[in-house]
Design a protein around this nucleic acid. Structure first.
Lengths: 343, 343
DNA sequence: ACTCATTGTGAAATCGATTTCTTGTAAAGA
DNA sequence: TCTTTACAAGAAATCGATTTCACAATGAGT
């Protein structure tokens, strides 16, 4: 069967294409009896307007692009990102938008997608520090370029001209650290091994702020940073160094749950007990963190919610509304389980 | 700047739109000197053909849909699926296809997407047993409907009229079981708690075949099945029952790594040692399995490869080629680590 | 009764590409 | 030299929707 078009509907209901289009878009007056006939014809045939034709004429593709800016060596997709994608996708679908995922570095993906005009808006995940494409885009005055709104999922000073929805890394880390301090810990070790350097550095500020407030000094021999290897490999590596330490911290804050978990695994295989000998906490609240041994005390980072909010923000932009707040920041909640001991 | 169109290029290079289009599509003869001028104009302006116009005229959208048929209660995306998505996405992009992910039950997504005509082909992930949409589609003779090729990512007898790329579940499980038997185990427990009921049942057949071959009897008190709860919760639940068992198996095969890991966590927090007291193996080779305590012996399931192959198959279909093999099955490889003890 | 505003509708233009039709030119064959 | 063939390239039709334009018809206001 060749596809049903608007002309078929027009023919079937004895009116012109224009009239059919008018009931379709609903922004014009149409005689009630004709409207009913048209609606019936649409119902009967299962007609759906051709999206290509609509985009061509109407200048709206009813689809958005999500740029997943993963590292080339990033061999798997982390939980929070996927939750975010799920959040974006389901809110987009709800409003009739398709979402195209583009797994490609931002600097390549962005110029291409902008010129292709194949999406109405863009959400960028996994922003890196040096994104030429964004930077140059920020500079061009808005009279240039056919205004495709962009929402970033990591706030960054550099690109603050773009609206963003991000986790409140500095504040969350500050709060989490204060909580840890309130549990009596004074000797705190840090493991940073996330590909998200922006987040890591913001979190570090928050942690240091909490340290300062309580007169804790930052000890560099307790700071482990491995950003160029697999994060779980990092957890294992840190464990090896950690075990050699003369004086050990009483708690270790890992920048992600995966890291914490692999650290715990490595450290417990050498006989150390968590949390009796050493407390370990993570960030993210990945599903596994609830079922590990011991269950992990962590900071719950709401990926799904971030996705929903990002799409909502993009939608406002698409509708030409202006944002109440240009940069949304999402607070975490602390999940108390058994890997952090009160001392 | 209003967008560059083919007419602009034509004007700039002093030829007609038709000629520009001819060098664009490359299926007609164009004078070399003109071709150069046109190419230069394209280069200079950064012109990219409007996809909507191309689809409208050419009947090809250069985009494919991936239906992620997740359970409503499925709160996170598993590793293998995401790897598959990555595989699809990168091979698709390589050939200039966009991929739209549709996180929605197949029965809703499929009819809609087919009538919308917004994609050239479809890949269905996470097939369920009762997919009315597919079933009725299989029945309609191909003269009907504007032939959008569909590739399934789970082979199923029911829908075998559709081509598929899947894991060779029966065979993989058979081989894995034989390997476990070769390590001296006779008392084998099973945990099945995957949302992928099709895979689970196929794997069970393979396991049972290996049992039979070696004269092992299947003991139902060692078979744990929880498909209606979170898989890691299942691992924990099974551990509780397991610990009560009078006579325990010497090894437990979990249908996924997550389950194995949470089972190990629960069981070791009660003092049982893996693999000294009990061996545990999983399936998937999720990143964490390498860094758990003990590192997990598992079956490596190649999600990325599945994605690549699925797209390749879909592409053949789109190009009108016919498939050498309609149903591809991917073999796993066994990853020996430390959670399975030789006895 | 005569404007003027409000509705209602079809014809035709438009969006940006591809493809068919047509014509023109140059090279090859008779 | 005249026809045939191959190659080049413009003009115009086409894809399926939306929107502007033009024109009625109806009703309201003076």
């Amino acid at each position: 069967m060749k596809t049903t078009t608007i002309s078929d509907i027009a023919l079937l209901s004895g009116v012109s294409k224009s009239t059919v289009s008018r009931v379709l878009t609903g922004n014009s007056f149409v005689d009630e009896s004709k409207k009913i006939k048209i609606l019936k014809a649409i119902e009967d045939t299962g007609y759906i307007p051709n999206t290509a034709a609509q985009s061509l004429r109407g200048r709206s593709t009813k689809s958005i692009g999500v740029i997943l800016n993963l590292d080339p060596d990033y061999h798997f997709s982390d939980f929070v990102s996927m939750e975010t994608l799920r959040g974006i996708s389901s809110s987009a679908q709800m409003l009739g938008y398709r979402v195209s995922v583009i797994i490609e570095p931002c600097n390549q993906a962005l110029p291409k997608i902008l010129r292709e005009q194949s999406v109405d808006g863009i959400i960028v995940m996994g922003l890196k520090e040096k994104e030429e494409a964004l930077f140059s885009l920020a500079k061009t005055d808005n009279s240039e370029s056919p205004h495709v709104p962009i929402v970033l999922l990591n706030y960054s000073e550099e690109y603050k001209s773009f609206p963003s929805v991000s986790f409140d890394n500095e504040e969350n880390a500050y709060n989490f650290t204060r909580y840890i301090l309130s549990m009596g810990h004074q000797d705190i070790g840090l493991i940073d091994s996330s590909k998200d350097v922006l987040a890591v550095s913001n979190r570090k500020h928050g942690i240091l702020r909490a340290f300062e407030e309580s007169g804790i000094v930052f000890r560099s021999e307790w700071y482990f940073e491995y950003t160029n290897i697999n994060k779980m490999e990092a957890g294992r590596k840190v464990a090896i160094n950690f075990l050699q330490l003369e004086k050990k911290p009483s708690v270790v804050i890992a920048s992600e749950d995966d890291i914490a978990l692999s650290f715990i695994a490595a450290v417990s295989s050498s006989g150390l007990k968590v949390p009796d000998d050493i407390s370990v906490v993570g960030v993210d609240n990945i599903p596994m963190s609830q079922y590990s041994n011991p269950p992990l005390t962590t900071e719950k980072v709401e990926g799904y919610r971030r996705g929903v909010m990002a799409f909502k923000m993009l939608k406002s932009l698409l509708d030409g509304e202006d944002l109440k707040e240009k940069h949304l920041k999402i607070r975490s909640v602390i999940v108390e389980r058994n890997s952090l001991k009160k001392i």
